[in-house]
Design a protein around this nucleic acid. Structure first.
Length: 172
DNA sequence: GACAGATGAAGGA
DNA sequence: TCCTTCATCTGTC
């Protein structure tokens, strides 16, 4: 069970993302349009147990990395990510995603091969959809076979936008 | 234990 | 080509 998370906004040209930090690192990242929904679901209070200086340092890294990726550049440094509460399978999928460099894409099938389960393509899709840290964990760089868009948790519009900025061309 | 899903491949029209 | 169907694997309820 996760402890209370600290929420900090990340202002970008595309809107205000909402980063959630635990004592171990960045735990979640919300899309700008989801901010209201999250807020409506109940504002979390700051957890005094989490060292604020450390969070602020992570937040700087997060904001810098997010802006880099949103402008189509490679994020040089990421804050520690807190994947507590997720399964080993999901973590292995997300690790594979982070190996995809900016401007490149892979298919769900290729990710499945990369984690040693070539047939688990549908499960990879599920893990991508469960990704709590979009953009920084580049699930938008995963396309279906034949370079088709597939789906995206933040909406296909975001996926399309991010890929365009990275200079990725695709069919469909 | 059953069901659903951000897939992929194969077969038919 | 495009559409439909089925196989496959994992997560969630």
């Amino acid at each position: 069970m996760k402890t209370a998370l600290i929420e900090l906004p990340v202002a970008t040209a595309d809107g205000i993302f909402l980063a959630h930090y635990s004592e171990r690192g960045l735990a979640e990242l919300d899309w700008p349009e989801r901010k209201k929904r999250k807020a409506e679901s109940g504002n979390r209070k700051l957890n005094a147990d989490v060292p604020l200086a450390k969070i602020q340092n992570w937040h700087k890294l997060t904001a810098a990395a997010l802006k880099k990726i949103l402008t189509g550049c490679e994020a040089k440094k990421l804050p520690p990510l807190d994947w507590a509460g997720t399964t080993e399978f999901q973590k292995s999928v997300w690790r594979a995603l982070r190996k995809i460099s900016s401007g490149k894409t892979k298919s769900y099938g290729e990710i499945a091969v990369a984690i040693g389960n070539p047939k688990a393509v549908r499960a990879v899709g599920g893990a991508c959809g469960a990704n709590p840290i979009p953009v920084l964990v580049p699930c938008h760089r995963v396309l279906a076979a034949n370079k088709k868009m597939g789906g995206f948790s933040g909406g296909l519009d975001w996926k399309r936008r991010l890929l365009l900025r990275e200079g990725v061309g695709w069919h469909g």
